[in-house]
Amino acid sequence: MSNPLSMLFGKSPIKQLQEHMSLVTDCTAELSDFFQAAISGDWPRAEAHYDSICSLENQADDLKRELRLQMPKGLFMPVSRSDVLELITVQDNIANRARDIAGLMLGREMEIPAPIREEMCLLVEGAIAVTRQALRLINELNELVETGFADREVDLVEEQIHELDDKERSTDVLERTIRHKLFAVEKDYHPLDMMFLYDIIQKVGGLANRARRVGGRLQTLVAR
């Protein structure tokens, strides 16, 4: 039955943004176990983790496509449509990056040299922490709509964005330390391996960077 009142309510994109971000966070979190397996040289176990990363990334992709299809032009929202669409792209890029890292490492069965192992694990955990903080931010969207984007709530979000930035900055520092340490020992290893290892370090740092961008997008979404 076409009833104007029941037709009036569109499907909220916010719930889907949150579900998507939660998938992305799960996907990134798998990197932790993947790295443990890779460091101990247990490649079959690493492959299992890589598979679950890929499956989570695929699920996130499907959700992204679904959301895009469910955002007709006639939808009236408290946030701009293009902001929502960009936000989902930014979120999705995090998962893509996690899959790339695991894929490259698995494909080359890359070894992490002992001098940087500890810091490397810290860097991965750091990047995951930034993603978790981004998820916390996205979950704040509920309360933002609930209060009709009240100033107090917007301030709260701003605070959490600062926290996100701080967390990302600490991964930057870590990334530099690792590169420095690796530079000292790189001549002891095969040059090609080292080239790819630098690439991985940069990509993990980039993971945190992409998670940080969620905060930036949210800021433009909230401020109007």
Binding site: F9, S12, F76, P78, V145, G148, F149
Partner: peptide
Amino acid sequence: RGIAALNL
């Protein structure tokens, strides 16, 4: 700005 999505 109180409702997540309305169909215009």
